Computed example of a mutant assay.
Amino acid sequence: MSLLAPFRSSDQEDAPPGTPQPDLPLGRRVELPGRGTTFVRDVPGPPGAPTVVLLHGLIASGGLNWFQAFGPLGKHFRVLAIDHRGHARGLRTRKRFRLADCADDVAALLDALDIDDAIAVGYSMGGPIAQLLWKRHPEKVSGLVLCATADRFVPGRREQLVFVTAMGAAAGSTRFGQLLTRVPVGVVQRHVPAGVRARPESFRRWARAEMGRHDWRMVAEAAGAIGTYDASQWIGDIDVPTAVLVTTDDKAVPATEQARLVVRIPDATIHRVDDGHIVCSRPLFGPVLTRAVRDVADRIA
């Protein structure tokens, strides 16, 4: 029996009837005591397999960011993919978006599912969340895989101020949210593999439904939080097996910034993929990511 299924009621609630979608694992809503309700996709994996928790990037979701990885990873690991707060079906709150709160959400999810620890895999914005999960809840993290990400995203303080001011203004703009709702679907479509592009309308409808669930105020605040993130003072303290997956043609997070993680984190290994920031939408991503995660799993004592 396949661990993945193309049709789940929770995926179709905003899509026209009969709309095909990428194969996705079962998803369910999970109550995080004292925090709210989130959404997680779950691949059981082989009996007794280690757990991998997948942390998606900005303006994505667990489904959109990782749909190419569920199958390859699920052959070796139990796989969880959470929707972060404000994204897709993730936790909703009136509080300002903080990356630290996302890390605490992941720790609460592991507690709710009675999982002692996991390999945290962070993509782009998910990288800081994975790093903060280790810093704030080290007992929950057995290893790290950091993909297309860095320990700081806007190098200069002046640039940070400009970035955060712009995103803060955008957070209060309804027009901004409407604009973003339209733009990313086309971006995703241009970068998806040929097999999916052959069915563009089905993929676009699924992606539009997934992204239409975002709380755009929180997404804009998330962008601002990324702009001020700086773990350079403590990133070298990471003491769990770590792999860094560098996207060498990345225009969003320069490969040089990604590669610095390998220098800063003791005993980190490097894995390269010659593609850009949306490599996660391509079939090659699943096998490359799986090799990086298995590298970390093999080094866990």
Rank of each mutant, 00 (worst) to 15 (best):
M1K: 13
S2C: 10
S9T: 12
P17M: 08
T19R: 01
P22V: 04
D23C: 14
D23T: 12
T37S: 02
V43L: 08
P47T: 13
P50M: 09
T51F: 01
L54R: 07
H56Q: 09
G57Y: 07
I59C: 13
I59T: 15
A60C: 11
G62C: 03
F70S: 14
F70E: 03
G71E: 08
L73E: 05
G74Q: 01
G86L: 05
H87Q: 10
G90I: 00
G90L: 00
G90P: 02
R92I: 02
T93D: 06
R94K: 12
K95N: 14
D104E: 08
V106S: 04
V106L: 07
L109S: 06
L110Y: 02
A118Q: 00
A118W: 07
G126H: 01
G127T: 09
A130L: 07
R136A: 15
K140I: 09
T149Q: 02
G156C: 10
V164C: 00
M167L: 11
G172H: 05
S173P: 03
R175I: 12
Q178G: 13
P193W: 10
F203Y: 10
E210A: 12
R213M: 04
G227P: 07
W234T: 07
G236Y: 02
D237M: 03
I238R: 00
D239C: 06
P241R: 05
A243V: 02
V253T: 10
A255N: 02
E257A: 12
R260W: 00
R264Q: 08
D267W: 02
D267M: 04
D274Q: 12
I278K: 11
S281E: 10
L289C: 01
A292V: 03
D298A: 15
